[in-house]
Amino acid sequence: MKTLHDNLFRSLNPEQLALYERLFETVTNKEGGLYFLYGPGGTVKTFLYNTILTKLRSEKMIVLAVASSGIASLLLLEGRTAHNRFVIPLELMENSTCGIKQKTHLAALMHEARLIIWDKAPMTQRYAFEALDKTLRDILGSKKEANRTKLFAGMPILIGGDFRQILPVIPKGKRQEVVNACINRSELWKFCHLHTLSRIMRVNEYTLSGQIDSRKCAFNKWVLDVGDGNVPASSKEGDDEPSWIKIPEEFIVKNGINPIETIVDTIFPEFHLRQDDEDYLRERAILTPGNDDADAINKHMFKKLQGETMTFKSSDEICKGYTDCIEQQQSYPVEYLTSSIFRVCLLTN
């Protein structure tokens, strides 16, 4: 764990390092507080969370890492969804509390925890955070009465996310209802310490020589302007409000005879020479919302690969030909059959 932390720590930029040191000091001195890490996508907030996690856990401290969505929780070291970890009710109301009972293993874990990290916080209704606040005051206040009057019972909480992205889902809710459900509309927000990350790491604005790449800077600024609503939008017939924007020509891959080949050659130049270069492959990706497009791009990329082709087959269900099929289905659920542990077992057998 310490080696992993040292590797992560060396890559922190000054903005990340400032919050890292502040959180470490807060936890070490057993101070409380609510901290919000705000930054657009690409400022590698998750990277900072994992750096803090490895630091504290390497020093034998218990840190609870949760996220508002299952996918986001997988990116945190030993992460869980917030609803699972804190037993948050699915139907939240103003007076809701978490389902953690006194004198249970989960309550004992809350007593031992030194920090809670909650990613994708803007996705969750404010009542969830208020429920956790009330619950921690009740549980931690059972041993120390003074904790009942402290924010989150004196437990330091680091939440983070980007309000440009997904906000709480309110069935049939209007804009005002969605906004009022956000964490920054809670009474807790006035006690929050805000830290902002501004440097986009996903699209590095620097060249290999350390010079500023003006084209990449312009792209990053345009993406932020879209999220902030600063790009003029138009509407089509039947739209409730303007929601269509025009992408500048300089950010569009020029059409060629074969569109797929054009975009692949743009994102993966000299692929035939560098297909075994892990760093080259790791820093590139082609994103598409359609499965048909993804299949077509993958098929094109496979044709460009050099070397012997190998096929690895997988299965996500037990063969129904076995007489003890029902017992095996109970022993080997789908989640296990699709896990990396099961694949490793197959390769080693």
Rank of each mutant, 00 (worst) to 15 (best):
D6T: 14
D6R: 15
E15T: 06
L17P: 00
A18L: 15
R22L: 11
L23V: 06
F24W: 15
V27T: 05
T28Y: 14
N29C: 10
N29F: 13
G39L: 01
T43A: 14
I52C: 14
R57C: 05
S58C: 05
V63E: 10
L64N: 07
S69H: 08
A72R: 07
A72Q: 06
A72K: 11
A72W: 01
F86T: 11
L90F: 12
L92R: 12
E94Y: 05
T97E: 12
C98G: 14
Q102M: 15
T104Y: 04
L106H: 10
A108M: 14
A113Q: 12
P122W: 00
Q125I: 01
Q125T: 02
Y127T: 04
A131T: 00
L132A: 04
L136W: 06
D138K: 15
I139R: 12
G141I: 13
G141M: 02
K143I: 09
N147L: 07
K150W: 06
L158I: 11
I159Q: 13
I159G: 03
G161R: 02
G161I: 02
R164T: 00
Q165R: 01
P168A: 06
K174S: 10
E177C: 03
S209I: 08
S209K: 15
S214I: 11
A218V: 08
N220R: 03
K221W: 09
W222M: 04
V223Q: 05
N230A: 11
E237S: 12
G238S: 00
P242L: 01
P248K: 11
V253G: 05
K254I: 08
I257C: 06
I257G: 02
N258T: 11
N258G: 12
I260H: 04
V264D: 00
T266D: 01
E270I: 04
R274T: 08
D276V: 09
D276G: 07
D277Q: 08
D277P: 10
D277C: 00
Y280I: 06
I286G: 02
T288C: 08
T288A: 07
T288Y: 09
G290V: 08
I297Q: 04
K299F: 09
K313H: 09
E327R: 08
Q329Y: 06
V334L: 12
L346Y: 00
